[in-house]
Structures are given as structure tokens and as C-alpha cells.
Design a protein around this nucleic acid. Structure first.
Lengths: 331, 331
DNA sequence: TTGAAAGCGGTACCAG
DNA sequence: CTGGTACCGCTTTCAA
């Protein structure tokens, strides 16, 4: 492993100058910088980030702007993943500051972002709501701060983590398509209200179910579903043996149970404690859910990598893992 | 974050002595050691492993004794995971040396192990075949070398990674149990030959299928299955709509296809390129497989943690992740 | 525009 | 049994 002093010795200069070139300082003659960088790439120099980290005494603050959606499990898991990573790298002096804003409040996120940027931060993790505005704010900073976005890609060369809701919907369709009997139909209910995930789940589900040439009814959209659950009954013909809901599966199941309609196979997307309970009791066969804890962990890891430019070639896009959860998967 | 010099200052001694106490040196008066350790725990001192790593100039060799089974995918993935981790921590001077031995050659593993232990190594990852003998060899070294075992726990206080074949079998049963029709039966074929995984897959599958009160035939054990595939036909009664095999699913499917028996739903355990192809073509509905790459990565990470005693309280048992793979999961 | 020197949190060697 | 000191690879401040 080649070091800065070795480079310095070869060129007959001091480590300090070498460091300056490597860190993109302005106070250096272009020609020396040039020759240092040439030699560095030639010899395959890679900065040892242990040394760097130890030398930078400052706490390195990474801000994570997490959106709070109706699904509390989402932000909870995401935060757990971020904390898991923080714990792992606390020897590096990394501090992850988590700030939550409401998913429906686009302006609040921008306001918080602006405020956060007043002080110096090392990294930023964000689920951008208003992509255009946020791009504009972040554009001039993108070389100083290492930025990882969740869900949407902010910059052409930016690192982001894809949540894959659409994909989860497709998998749900494949699973339920295999469970529903050939001569029976799947009822698809659109319980969507969350603008980030539900619609994508549904689209994924429907497109896949069509590809599978599986018979289905729907997607049925019921305004204010939780208040109008009885409208579901209009669609429960005898040839329906299974039901997919992109949202509010627990509430719907509870309702159907209360009127003694219990013989349907349910598959849904997403995860929370209610869904867990219903899988355990057998009332939901399976759910397909993204691993948000892993998403948080990965997000942390990626800013960290950018921070220390630990390796030159990394993918730009990272895909959240998708879990297919049956009852047996829960223990 | 409290450091060794801070402890030293408080006690009015030098860093050197503090380090000695913390590293368990013999050359130190019991009372001073005592007081240092007391203060350290009192103040919650944790060693900064960046500093340690930088100070230890030596290359830190971790040996991984990987078993080579009939399923080439297994060791390939495991190795990939180990390499992924090695890449991640190469700044620490960690070198993972992978040695493969045959899964059926119990003595060869012991021989290689003894040879490896002649030189100084920092860590060991092993899938122990002869647990008793290997324990005996490793017992006197377990405080100097950080050891992580795969599949079996070697010591009461030892860290190990559980491969969860039994669990994978149970999940396969749940998946297929949901796919097979109520009035139909599942044919269970024991194609097992690999003494590590196949039997456990099968046991898990059978126990779960019984719990589910699902009708089934088998498990059918056919000697030298690949040569006697036609014997399967004896069990293919009309009420069978689906088949589980713990091993050789591709070969069986190919055979059944050749005699035009194609209308069965297949679920299996494990993963390789043939299985992948059959899932893509729809001939296998799903497979349940452990994530061996993750297992390798985790194994590396655990020895590393032990190496640097990065944190005091870690679980001893780590579970391999289990993937449920449908066609949609492959892209 | 460059260099010298101190320091980050440890380890290791030598002297006493 | 304890202390002094050099060093790991890098950053940062001060001086030239």
C-alpha cells in the first residue's frame, strides 16, 4: 500500500505538498499538483481513510432528512438502519443527525434543508419530495457534501437508493397469482392514500397480474375506504378466492371477519405490527415488503464511502432488498 | 470518547501502563492493573480500533476454511462474500486467506487446519466437519485467535453463523402448501446426498407440511436417484398437483418433461444456475435458498469485530438470511 | 507556493 | 514493573 510520504520521497518534496495536491487545495503550483496526481494514479495510490479519520479531529455530522409517512414502521425502520450504521462507524467520529419532516409537507422539507445547510455538514441523506427545488439548492454544494438520495436520483452522477415499490407490487402479484386457483379470480382493492408507495405497489401488482393472464376484478377504488368498507361487498362475487390490497389490509380483514367473510387468501405489500399479527394468525398469507432497515444502513454506508472516497468505482444505484414474508419467515 | 491518555492522566501514570493493563500484559502489578481496569469500565472506555489498526503494522491474516460441496454455488457465493468484506477492510491491513477442502474429507480439513496453525494467524473462519477433533485443536488457541464457525457452534461462548437449512425447508413447505390445491397432494422426493444441507431441508419441509395438515405422499427415497428417475412414476397418482425435491430438482424436471409430464408445481431449496433457468422458464415456481454471500460477508465481519473487540456485547449466534425466490425476484 | 511540526489514539521497543 | 519515545498515515496550523 503506497503512502503519501512515499510519493513525496519519490518526487523529492514533502508530505505536506503531496497532501495538498491530493486534497485539492488551491495553494499549490499547478505543475507540482499535476506531477503529484500523475504519479499517484500511476502507482495506484489510495488514501488510507483510517489515517485521515484519525487526523480529522472534528465530529463529522451527517444529516438524514427522513420523511414521516402514515406508515410509522417505515421511518422507524429507516432510523434503526441509520443508527445501526452510526454505531458501526462511531470510532470515525461520525454523527448521524436524523430530522423528520412530514411526507405531505413539501415546503417544510425545503425549509429544514436550508436551515441545516447553514452549518457545515459532511454528508446528507434525503428522500427528496420536491426534486426540482432540492436539486437547485444542492447543486452548488454537491462537491463539498456527500449526498445520497432515497427513492429518486437527484443528479446524473448522484448516488441513490431505489425503494422498489413497483417491483414489490409485481412480486406480490406473482405470489398471489400462484396461490389463487386457476378458475378463480383475485379481487384487487386500491386502498391507496400515501403518495409515495401505494400507487406504485398497485401499478406493479396490476401489470404483473395482467402478464400472468390471471383473472381478476378491479382495481376497485373506494373513496375514503376506511369509512366505506361495506362497498367492498359489491365486488365479492363467488368466483373470487383471494384479495390483494395495497394499503389497509388489516382494517379490511377485520371488517370482513366481523361479517363472517373469512375464506379469502390475502396478500399485501408493506409491513407493520398489525400485518405481522395477521400473518401469524394465518389471516394474511404473505406480505412483500422492502427492507427499510437495510435501506437506512445502506444509505449511511454510501455517504460514508463518498466521504472517504474509499474506492473509486461504486455503483450509483442501490436497490433496497425486498422480503417475501410468510408465517415461517417471522421467527 | 475517552482515551488511554485520559485514563493515564487521571491516575497519574503513563499511557504505556494503561495500555498494558488494557491489553492483558503480564508485566504489570496486579493492583495497578486492577485500578486501571476499574476506572476504564467506570468511564466506559472503548478502544478506538482505528488507532490500534494503524499502530499494528503487521498484515493481519484471517484464514477461511471453506468446504467444497457438490453444490458449487455454495462455496462460490461464500467466497464472494468473504472477498467483499476483505475489500471493505483492506485499509486495516486485513488479508483473508481462503482454503478449500472437500466436504466429505473430514481428515483433510483437520490436516489443513493443523498446517495453517503453524504460522501466526489473527482469525479463523471454519465450517467444522469433525466438531470434536476441531474443538480439541482450537481449545487452547481460542483466546489468541478470533474464531467464527459456520453451521455448528464450536464453543459455549463461541460466535457462529447458523445456516438454517431446516428453516429453509419449513418455508418451502409453507410456500408450496399454499400453492397446492386443498384437495390435492404434494409429492415429496428425497433426492438427498449432501450430508450437510439436504437432510435438513427435508426434515424441515416434512415437519412443517405435517403441521399444516396438508396432504402429501412421501418422502420417497430412491436409491441412486439420478439413475432411477423412472421410479418416480410409481408415485405420481392423479391427486398429486405439486412436487417438492430437496436436491436434483433440475434433473427430475427434465426427466418428467421428456415423458411429457409437465403439469406439476415445483418448489425446491437451494440455488444454482440451472434452478435459476427453470424459475425463469416457469418450470419451478419458487426456491428457498440461504444467502451464502451474505453468510461469507457476515463471517468476515464477525472475526473482525472479535479481532478489535469493537464492542463488548454482540450476539453469539448469527442467522443466515433466507431468500424466497420467485421469478420476479430474479431481475 | 512550500515546508516543519504537532497531533489523532493507539502499539512496541528499549531502558531503568 | 513502569516510563520514554518513535511510529502508523493523514490533516492542520504556522512560518518562511
Amino acid at each position: 500500500m503506497i503512502t503519501q510520504s512515499e510519493l513525496a520521497k519519490i518526487l523529492g518534496i514533502t508530505r505536506t505538498t503531496v497532501a495538498r495536491a491530493l486534497n485539492g487545495s488551491k495553494n499549490i503550483k499547478p505543475e507540482t499538483k499535476e506531477s503529484i496526481l500523475r504519479l499517484a494514479t500511476e502507482l495506484g495510490y489510495e488514501k488510507n481513510y483510517l489515517g485521515s479519520s484519525l487526523a480529522i479531529k472534528e465530529k463529522k455530522v451527517i444529516v438524514a432528512l427522513v420523511v414521516k409517512s402514515m406508515n410509522e414502521e417505515y421511518s422507524k425502520q429507516l432510523k434503526n438502519g441509520l443508527k445501526e450504521f452510526e454505531e458501526e462507524v462511531k470510532a470515525y467520529g461520525v454523527k448521524i443527525k436524523i430530522i423528520e419532516t412530514d411526507i405531505s409537507d413539501v415546503d417544510a422539507q425545503i425549509e429544514v434543508l436550508n436551515k441545516v445547510l447553514e452549518k457545515k455538514i459532511y454528508g446528507l441523506i434525503i428522500t427528496p419530495l420536491d426534486k426540482i427545488k432540492i436539486r437547485k439548492i444542492l447543486q452548488p454544494l454537491k462537491n463539498e457534501i456527500s449526498i445520497v438520495s432515497i427513492g429518486k436520483q437527484l443528479f446524473e452522477d448522484g448516488v441513490y437508493i431505489d425503494s422498489r415499490y413497483y417491483k414489490s407490487g409485481r412480486i406480490a402479484a406473482e405470489v398471489l397469482g400462484n396461490i389463487s386457483k386457476k378458475d378463480k379470480k383475485i379481487l384487487i382493492i386500491d386502498g391507496g392514500d400515501d403518495r409515495v408507495s401505494s400507487k406504485k405497489y398497485l401499478t406493479g401488482f396490476c401489470e404483473k397480474i395482467v402478464e400472468l393472464k390471471k383473472n381478476f376484478v378491479g382495481p376497485v377504488e373506494i373513496d375514503d375506504l376506511l369509512e366505506n368498507k361495506s362497498k367492498i361487498l359489491n365486488y365479492l362475487s363467488n368466483d373470487i378466492d383471494s384479495i390483494y390490497v395495497n394499503r389497509f389490509a388489516p382494517e379490511i380483514i377485520e371488517y370482513l371477519k366481523s361479517i363472517n367473510k373469512i375464506d379469502f387468501k390475502f396478500v399485501t405489500n408493506g409491513f407493520n405490527q398489525k400485518i405481522r399479527g395477521l400473518i401469524q394468525s394465518g389471516e394474511i398469507v404473505a406480505t412483500i415488503s422492502e427492507d427499510f432497515q437495510n435501506q437506512g444502513y445502506t444509505a449511511g454506508k454510501r455517504v460514508f464511502e463518498l466521504l472517504y472516497k474509499t474506492s473509486l468505482k461504486r455503483p450509483q444505484e442501490y436497490k433496497t432488498k425486498i422480503d417475501i414474508l410468510f408465517k415461517e419467515s417471522l421467527y
